[in-house]
Design a protein around this nucleic acid. Structure first.
Lengths: 118, 118
DNA sequence: ACCTATTTGTCCGTATGTATG
DNA sequence: CCATACATACGGACAAATAGG
C-alpha cells in the first residue's frame, strides 16, 4: 500500500491517514476481512506518531468501517451474513441512548430482563 | 457541579467524564445554551489530565450534544430530546430482535457491556 | 487596530495496561 | 510465558480561534 500524508497540509494528519484507508477500501485493494497493517508499521512508514495512526483507526472504527481489537489488530468489517447484524445495530443504538441519559449497563440489563418476561 | 471520577474503575476516565456531563444534562442542571466549564478547570477539579477532559468533550461533540470551538469553549447544543421513553422503545425492539435469533438476555448483556466499553 | 489571555486542536513522547495469538 | 497490538493516561509543546481590554 502506498500511503502518503502531507505534514504541511492544514487538514489534520489523523484525518489524512484515515482517508488513506478509505481510499484503499474504495479502490478494492482492501477487502472485507483483510487485515490492516499495524498502527506501529503505518506510523513508521508515514513517519508520524503512533497515536496519530491509532486515532485514525479509531475514527474508522466509529464509522463502522473496521473492527479494532487489542492484540489482534484492525480488520476491515465484514458484512456479517448472520442475522445478528441488526442485533448489534440495535445494541449500539441502545447504548448510545443509554449514555445520553446516564444509564448504566446494569440498568439496561434490568430493563431487558423485565421486557423478556413479557 | 459536583463531578467525580474513579481512577481505579475499569471504565476509561474520559468515558466517566463524558458521563458526568450527560448526567448533568439529563438532570437538567445543564440546559441548552449553557457553557460547560473549560477543560482546564475540569481537569484541575477532577485531578485528571487536560487531554482526558478534551477527549471526553470531543466525544460529546461527536454525539451532537455540545458545540465545541477554540477560544470559546463548550456549549450545550441540545436539550436531550429522548429520555427514558426512547430507551424503553429501543429495549423493546432489541428484545424482539433477540427472540428472532434465539439470543438470551445474557447474550444481550454481554453485547451491551462490550459496546459500553468502547 | 493591537495586544493579551483563554480555550480548544493537534502532534509528539513516554509509560503502563489489557487482550490476543 | 512471551511477543504483538491496541487502549488509555499523563505530560509537553505549539498552533489557531475567540473574547476582552
Amino acid at each position: 500500500m502506498l500511503w502518503q500524508v502531507d505534514p504541511t497540509s492544514s487538514t489534520a494528519l489523523h484525518v489524512q491517514v484515515a482517508a488513506c484507508v478509505r481510499r484503499e477500501m474504495a479502490s478494492g485493494r482492501l477487502a472485507k476481512g483483510d487485515r490492516l497493517p499495524s498502527a506501529k508499521e503505518v506510523a513508521a512508514v508515514l513517519d508520524v506518531n503512533l497515536h496519530t495512526v491509532l486515532r485514525a483507526y479509531q475514527s474508522l472504527r466509529d464509522e463502522g468501517l473496521i473492527d479494532l481489537r487489542r492484540g489482534r489488530g484492525a480488520v476491515v468489517s465484514t458484512s456479517d451474513p448472520g442475522g445478528d447484524a441488526r442485533l448489534r445495530t440495535l445494541v449500539a443504538e441502545l447504548v448510545a441512548a443509554a449514555r445520553l441519559v446516564g444509564a448504566t449497563p446494569a440498568d439496561l440489563t434490568r430493563l431487558i430482563e423485565s421486557e423478556f418476561q413479557r
